[in-house]
Design a protein around this nucleic acid. Structure first.
Length: 345
DNA sequence: CCCCTCTCCTGATCGC
DNA sequence: TGCGATCAGGAGAGGG
């Protein structure tokens, strides 16, 4: 399940391949992927074609491509504000979403002039192609080599030749694509559909004390709040369990019965475990195949309790327990994380 | 307003 | 072998 570290790995991999490049074509294969966009896939593809990707950004588990109009080479002046000012493509990977980059050079047999015998992946839901010519809009993150990328197969110096296809694979179809406009929220530009999402623990401007204050005002179980993306974002079931284990708190504790320092400790633990997962993901990341399938599990080596029912707690050796929670599973140490005596009153 | 439950979806796995 | 039940869960709609 892609949570913050997995999405960040994807963001970095994508930035290397698309920053500064032109989207030459796009196609939405599954209407479900654009279910939040009334006009539909055909219209979204039309909106993307011809735009440039200025940068790839993220908040929590939400990812977006910032789109810009092509660099001007004469011609009429742009309309006031530009028709694409502040436009972005928001992507949420849901439970099973993956972004795969296929470069023409290394996948020539199945991309470009496509032989009939080469099948698309059965879970391919949408894709867009990017050109070889990269423009650096500013000095931001991860823009790949600037200029004409070799291996386009034609030797032509034109930037319109597509050299890579960015594919969205999604088995369980909980993921989605949605075009949106950037808005200012608390001094940061985020897409309008992301405006209600809190800063994540890896955000330099994340305010742990403030988040703890918000959480302490709620009469509900603390794990519920860790999963609430309007409290703190980027945390899913896996990292919620890991953070609670590190802080030695049972997820069924009432948030308003915990101290603020205890809540800050839980949030700090979430940040630490995410940073460690990110380190691992960053090193095992395959630039050609941006795989975020948590179940295949290159991050799972660093997990202490999640999915480890019966295995010894790394801290005290007691066998890890599994409990029902919100029709899902929670994993914890029965000794390090004492269950509250009373359920919520 | 606040909190909680339900629903969307597919494929692997299990028991009979 | 086949088939139904179960499980995985992020996010948003809707209910109490």
């Amino acid at each position: 399940m892609p949570e913050l570290p997995e999405v960040e790995v994807v963001r970095r991999g994508l930035a290397d391949h698309v920053a500064g490049r032109e989207i030459t074509a796009a196609r939405i294969l599954s209407p479900r992927t654009v279910r939040r966009f009334e006009p539909g896939g055909r219209e979204l593809a039309r909106m993307l074609a011809g735009r440039h990707v200025a940068r790839v950004a993220r908040r929590g588990k939400y990812l977006w491509f910032e789109l810009a109009d092509p660099p001007r080479t004469g011609g009429p002046a742009p309309s006031p504000g530009g028709d694409g000012a502040g436009r972005v493509l928001v992507v949420h990977l849901g439970m099973s979403g993956q972004m795969r980059v296929r470069s023409r050079r290394q996948d020539a047999s199945s991309f470009g002039s496509r032989p009939a015998f080469v099948q698309d992946h059965p879970h391919l839901r949408a894709y867009f192609d990017v050109s070889g010519l990269a423009y650096r809009a500013d000095g931001t993150d991860g823009a790949g080599p600037v200029g004409v990328v070799d291996g386009a197969g034609t030797g032509a110096a034109g930037g319109s030749e597509a050299v890579a296809r960015i594919e969205f694979l999604d088995q369980r179809t909980f993921g989605w694509w949605l075009p949106a406009q950037l808005v200012d929220v608390d001094g940061t530009r985020v897409p309008a559909p992301v405006a209600h999402i809190a800063r994540d623990p890896m955000d330099p401007r994340f305010d742990a004390a403030g988040a703890a204050r918000s959480m302490r005002a709620k009469h509900t179980e603390v794990k519920r709040l860790l999963l609430d993306q309007t409290m703190v974002s980027g945390i899913g079931n896996i990292y919620a369990d890991e953070a609670l284990w590190r802080a030695g708190v049972h997820g069924a504790r009432a948030a308003d019965a915990l101290t603020r320092p205890a809540l800050v400790r839980i949030l700090a633990a979430a940040r630490t475990v995410m940073a460690e997962a990110l380190e691992q993901g960053g090193t095992s990341f395959d630039a050609l195949y941006v795989n975020v399938n948590g179940e295949s599990g290159y991050f799972s080596r660093s997990l202490s309790v999640y999915g480890r029912v019966g295995e010894p707690c790394p801290r005290c050796g007691a066998p890890i327990r599994r409990e029902e929670f919100m029709n899902r599973s929670s994993y914890s140490c029965p000794r390090c994380q004492i269950r509250p005596r009373y359920p919520l009153r």
